[in-house]
Computed example of a mutant assay.
Amino acid sequence: MTTSPNDIPTLADLYNSNEISKANDDSKYNYDEALNKRISIWRGDITKLEADVIVNAANSSLLGGGGVDGAIHRAAGSNLLEECKTLGGAKTGETKLTKAYKLPSKFIAHTVGPIYSSSKKEECELNLKSCYSTSLELCKNNGGGSIGFSSISTGVYGYPIQDATEIAIETTRTILEKDETITRVIYVVFSQRDEDVYKSIIPKYFPPSSLSS
């Protein structure tokens, strides 16, 4: 069974239903109801999401792997691997687009997240920001619409979930402020822990009306 973005609550919905606490006084941005209607947090299976683009946390070969990467390749079928073989891999922070084949989405953005190292924190931040910005740019350049993100680099690549989520959400905010072609950004999380992290951080970047300045 697939899930449409229309079936997933927006951030505005989550605020209205009090599913996300409004008690956050360290917001870095102004309240914007229109932006809040373009953001979602969804605990579900990204291979079932009917988005225009889903973002795969790929390795540099782009030929599949474990976790979300393997699940996307299995669900999409062998034609995805054949197309990926033509792409010549990708560098850390780079994103390449393919068709989605048997998936309900239209495209897959394969992005290569950084392997986290505390001694290279600044470099890791720049590369992770690039993963999100290049994925959003590809969505914009291919008709816009909805995009679903897996939580890049937070699995076996070891990026601390709190830090990675801050980068993901702030990068999204800065891009959506300048672009109207992307109608929905869905953060697809696997665990309750990750969902709670996203919900605790997101008011800083997409505050509710009570925090309007």
Rank of each mutant, 00 (worst) to 15 (best):
G77D: 05
S78K: 06
S78E: 12
S78V: 04
N79W: 13
L80G: 10
L80P: 08
L81W: 06
L81M: 10
L81G: 10
E82I: 15
E82W: 14
E83F: 02
E83P: 01
C84K: 03
C84G: 07
K85H: 06
K85I: 05
T86V: 00
T86D: 01
L87D: 00
L87C: 02
G88A: 12
G88N: 10
G89W: 08
G89R: 09
A90M: 12
A90N: 09
A90I: 10
K91C: 13
K91S: 14
T92R: 10
T92Q: 08
G93A: 04
G93D: 05
E94W: 09
E94K: 13
E94M: 10
T95I: 07
T95N: 14
T95M: 13
K96N: 07
L97D: 01
L97Q: 01
T98I: 03
T98L: 04
K99T: 01
A100R: 05
Y101G: 02
Y101N: 04
K102S: 07
K102F: 02
L103V: 02
P104Q: 11
P104H: 09
P104G: 04
S105V: 13
S105T: 14
S105C: 15
K106L: 13
K106S: 13
K106D: 07
K106Y: 09
F107C: 14
F107S: 15
F107G: 11
I108N: 11
I108M: 11
H110D: 08
T111I: 05
T111F: 06
T111Q: 09
V112F: 13
V112K: 15
G113W: 02
P114M: 02
P114H: 04
P114A: 04
I115T: 14
I115N: 14
I115G: 08
Y116T: 09
S118V: 11
S118D: 14
K120H: 12
K121E: 11
E122T: 15
E122N: 15
E122M: 15
E122Q: 15
E123G: 02
C124F: 03
C124Q: 00
E125S: 09
E125L: 07
E125F: 08
E125K: 10
L126R: 10
N127D: 08
N127Q: 12
S130R: 01
S130T: 01
S130W: 02
S130F: 00
Y132S: 09
Y132T: 03
S133K: 11
S133M: 12
T134G: 02
T134H: 12
L136D: 00
L136P: 04
E137H: 08
E137T: 13
C139R: 08
C139Q: 11
K140Y: 03
K140L: 00
N141D: 00
N142G: 03
N142P: 06
N142W: 04
G143C: 06
G143L: 04
G144N: 01
G144R: 01
S146D: 01
S146M: 02
S146R: 01
I147S: 07
I147K: 13
I147C: 10
F149A: 12
S151A: 11
S153G: 08
S153I: 04
S153N: 07
S153W: 05
S153F: 05
G155T: 08
G155F: 12
G155H: 06
V156R: 14
V156K: 12
V156P: 07
V156S: 15
V156Y: 11
Y157Q: 03
Y157K: 01
Y157G: 03
G158W: 06
G158S: 08
G158H: 04
Y159T: 01
P160R: 05
P160C: 08
P160V: 05
I161L: 11
I161T: 14
